[in-house]
Design a binder for these strands. Structure first.
Lengths: 222, 222
DNA sequence: GAGCATACCTACTCGTGCGTAGGGTTACGC
DNA sequence: GCGTAACCCTACGCACGAGTAGGTATGCTC
């Protein structure tokens, strides 16, 4: 065959580390677009410019590949946040910077993270992985809240903190979803809005300004 | 054959309407446990005590079946909420009752709704269906907020309302997830906690108490 | 109690896509 | 320049599960 006329040098035979990253890039892209089950290993391999057995050789089965994606993106996200929070900042600023970094990250990786995250929740094998990540975040947030509260001399139960932290994290994820669907929106401004509802709400609550259910006519308080 | 000794009368030959409900029950259960792809039509049929072709005859393809599940559960949920909110109630009480009804519903249908909901988000074909439901809820919440705000003479942008509404809805969903994983928790108490962070936060925000990012040293305000 | 619609079944087809067997080729050490 | 290890391919096996063909039984109407 006379083929391979060195048109584009076709860059074949790349070192493993490089190929692995290309594969992961392709996998994230395809998983995002098609969903875990909708994605075929053939398409991923194709998109990475490589053949299927290579994917199996380097990253293992489909499940392992997905976990690898999850792991890489998760680590990147956590890193993006860790890079901007310094322990000497005030609680509110730490929270705001985290929000900013998080939403900024999601905004920059629309394709990647948010959809990957949406994917992973449904599938049994990965729910655990995700829940763990989520839990770590929730604990960080709960920690922030607790610290702030304790420093103001207020007592709160573990459960109360946990629920509030979950609410905050859920709210943020939801706003992240919104952000993914609104490319024109500015992550920083969104973070500020988010901060408003979250911080002001939490602060008020923690300061003791609670809302109590109205006693409706005739109902005896238990 | 001497079989069918009327041990249990085996209740065969039931009218269509009844069988359809049994099938839906089974489908919800299996979809919840296994996920959309993990569930097989055989298992669903089996669980409903019927053979596969009946499922196809009554509810159509797997996709249609799932949509039917989604639809039934979605309708039930909306109904549960609609049953407790009267238009003559104050905004905060309407919101609280909705929360209560919603979390109560989720608590009572742990198996059913929450997991179904988690499932549907990932799969392309149903994301639309779900987003529509979600959007309706967001709009209702946004409406509540707007009404309250306008009545206090404050101006807010469409976008701001939308983000806050998304945050609230996301927070609630997240807390619902938490509730599913904590069977010992009381939905009503959780609703009250939720109400605290949501309403107090939103109210403060809307009253104009905003949080503003600190101007860090040397940074010029744009 | 004949006829008909409806409920119901067993047993298949067939596409799809994961994972692999088995073999070729290019770089790199010596 | 020659062996060897890494990179890379084409082409398949195989299981699993959606959907169907074609036939049976049962209750209802007149």
């Amino acid at each position: 065959m006379l083929a391979r006329v060195s048109s584009t040098p076709t860059f074949r035979r790349l070192p493993r580390a490089v190929r692995e990253q290309q594969m992961l890039d392709a996998a994230v892209k395809v998983f995002s677009r098609r969903g875990y089950h909708g994605a075929s290993m053939d398409e991923i391999a194709d998109d990475a410019g490589i053949s299927k057995p290579m994917v199996y050789a380097y990253l293992g089965t489909k499940e392992e590949l997905f976990v690898a994606c999850l792991h890489r993106e998760g680590t990147r996200m956590m890193q993006a946040i860790a890079d901007v929070v310094a322990p000497d900042l005030s609680a509110d600023e730490r929270l705001w910077r985290s929000l900013q970094a998080f939403l900024g990250f999601v905004g920059a990786h629309r394709d990647g993270w948010a959809v990957l995250y949406r994917q992973a929740r449904g599938e049994q094998p990965f729910a655990g992985e995700l829940t763990a990540l989520r839990l770590r975040i929730v604990e960080v947030v709960a920690g922030m809240l607790e610290h702030t509260l304790r420093s103001e001399g207020r007592e709160v139960t573990e459960t109360e903190l946990e629920v509030v932290a979950y609410a905050l994290v859920g709210a943020t994820e939801s706003v992240a979803d919104w952000l993914v669907d609104h490319p024109e929106a500015d992550p920083e401004q969104t973070a500020t809005r988010m901060m408003n509802v979250a911080w002001v709400g939490a602060a008020q609550l923690l300061a003791g300004t609670t809302w109590r259910p109205p006693n409706r006519r005739g109902e005896a308080p238990s």
